[in-house]
Write a protein that binds this DNA or RNA. Structure first.
Lengths: 103, 103
DNA sequence: TCTTTGTTTCGTAATTAGACGAAATACTAA
DNA sequence: TTAGTATTTCGTCTAATTACGAAACAAAGA
């Protein structure tokens, strides 16, 4: 396999990945919800009640955010408690910060 | 037509729209490029030289960023000089800011 | 008038995203 | 063991995104 010329910087790639994850109103809503209730347990069902989408669709959005590293789920059957992934959140915050407030 | 219950706030909708626009490495690259060269004129061709994609594809990405309100193009045939749309950029910055640094 | 030039638009193909309902999962409680 | 519960996974469909090359455009210069 060839060593491919790199076109985008790591920052640009990551920036695009985090942005894409936040590129849907349901997923922005989820992040808002989790951040607002960072002290409590947040279950999928709590969010489902406020959203006009099928539970399976919500589950899909949750796993996209999880794959992007923005949230994590702690299994506690039959519930799953969701919360912010602090490392991912901090990285996204920093990336966005240097992107918008560049020197 | 019914008055539909609003599910997402304006902020959430806008947040998702701006994020989606930045959800591709080529578009992040374009923003970086325009911000870095804010003083100069930036033509499509200048960016095309650094990107491994067809010019028509680049043009598509440019018009997505334009549709999202993040950039604008001043026609100066046969060139088109692109630059940041300051109003959109400021709004995106503010949205991201309150999203990440909420109180 | 005919070329040339930089860029966009068009037509099209391949891939990914977003949505749903039905079925599966994994644990609790009866 | 059986039933119940919250959630996910699966299969499927439709729509949107990403990409390309060819053709169109609009002005400048020969």
């Amino acid at each position: 396999m060839n060593v491919q010329e790199k076109v985008f910087t790591d920052q640009q790639e990551k920036m695009a990945r985090y942005s894409k994850a936040l590129g849907h109103p349901v997923r922005v809503f989820i992040m808002d919800f989790l951040l607002k209730n960072a002290d409590k347990c947040c279950y999928s069902g709590d969010m489902a009640e406020e959203l006009p989408i099928a539970r399976s669709t919500l589950s899909q959005h949750l796993s996209e955010l999880k794959a992007a590293g923005l949230i994590q789920g702690e299994i506690n059957p039959p519930y799953i408690k969701y919360c912010i992934n602090k490392a991912g959140w901090a990285e996204a915050k920093e990336l966005l910060d240097t992107f918008f407030y560049r020197k």
